[in-house]
């Protein structure tokens, strides 16, 4: 568990490092999202015990969650459009 934790801290520091070297925003966003998903997965897999005990139908529920978030993302173009329609 300590190893997992150290990995999490290392990723956190790497993320902060991205800010340090002034990565281009688009690239930085992509990398940050990737690293954050990795961290979330680590926490869920080891700390939340998905590795050993999985609640019933978790994949289906997770799928629903991701689908909902995906749908909500459909709102984003509206933000860009609002800017161009001033």
């Amino acid at each position: 568990m300590i190893a997992v934790w150290l990995l999490l801290v290392a990723i956190t520091l790497a993320e902060a490092g991205l800010a340090w070297v002034h990565t281009a925003p688009a690239l930085m966003l992509a990398l940050l999202l990737l690293l954050s998903l990795a961290k979330a997965a680590l926490i869920a897999w080891y700390f939340m015990h998905l590795k050993s005990a999985r609640p019933k139908h978790l994949p289906a529920f997770l799928f629903t969650l991701f689908a909902c978030v995906g749908l909500l993302l459909a709102i984003l173009p509206e933000g860009i459009r609002a800017w161009s329609m001033r």
Partner: peptide, 12 residues
């Protein structure tokens, strides 16, 4: 802010 944003959330 954006008024349409609320409509999206509300109707979602």
């Amino acid at each position: 802010g954006s008024p349409l944003l609320f409509q999206h959330l509300f109707w979602f």
